[in-house]
Design a protein around this nucleic acid. Structure first.
Lengths: 138, 138
DNA sequence: GCGACATAGGTGCATATACACCTATCCGAT
DNA sequence: ATCGGATAGGTGTATATGCACCTATGTCGC
């Protein structure tokens, strides 16, 4: 056991905040059975339209194989569809299904409630600025 | 595909920043074969001394069972020891081994380098303030 | 057309995280 | 002494994340 005040770890502090924030959003989205990661993924697809897995991963700044696996629960629930590309037989195109679009519509009010709750207590512009600065610094 | 600018998700933005920051710290700690989560855990033990799993989890704001599993790789490497408590046979006391203390010493310079790199680019007080505000708001 | 390299994707493995459910034990009230 | 609730911990399952390694296919130079 060392003594003296320990210098706080910036990374661990952020991880802790992310755990808390994620739990808060996940709880808000519970009624529609989506996690915030899954809802965000559906929103990407809504915004980008049908897209190969690798490009979707790049957009979300996720590792390619992570994206592949994150799609699994959404696939199982029929919220997204994976179809082979016409141009490139290697590529798999991810797209929203009608059920996926409905899930976004159903989940959005709950997500907005979570956003509103947090944004009312912490300036979202500050959070964004810190997040972007950290990404740039990493 | 909906149109219009999408309102950014505060939670997803933070998750993304955390992924980037964690990758940066993990890369810095690579020479000693520790991840930032593991290093932080060793530091908790160093600061708190021998402690039951549940109390350690509470200190780190982690779910109890998560803490149990996060200890596994450290146990396997002999950096921490788990021993039954004398007073309460239900409790398992987690403690740093000599190898664990050596690992902290070996890892600290690499961790400091990662901290310095980030802290030079993003004010750590701001990050701390945002993190604490988010935790309080969650 | 063929060979070298790049690109799209998958699988195995490991860690990080949390919930539901289980057992064992302690402790206070009767 | 015992019974009931609280507490310490483990296990099963699921998601989130990334690395190493593999296959398949496209593309470009010759």
């Amino acid at each position: 056991m060392s003594d003296g005040p320990a210098e706080p770890c910036t990374c661990s502090a952020l991880r802790r905040a992310t755990r808390a924030l994620t739990a808060s959003y996940d709880a808000a989205l519970k009624p529609v059975g989506l996690r915030v990661t899954q809802f965000a993924l559906l929103r990407y697809l809504d915004r980008l339209g049908p897209i190969p897995v690798s490009r979707l991963a790049a957009e979300a700044a996720l590792e390619r194989t992570t994206m592949g696996r994150n799609l699994d629960p959404l696939k199982r629930r029929g919220l997204v569809a994976i179809t082979p590309s016409a141009e490139d037989p290697r590529a798999r195109i991810v797209s929203l299904t009608d059920a996926g679009r409905e899930a976004i519509v159903a989940a959005t009010p709950y997500w907005r409630a979570a956003q509103a709750r947090i944004n009312a207590r912490v300036d979202p512009a500050t959070v964004s600025a810190v997040a972007e600065a950290l990404i740039a610094a990493s």
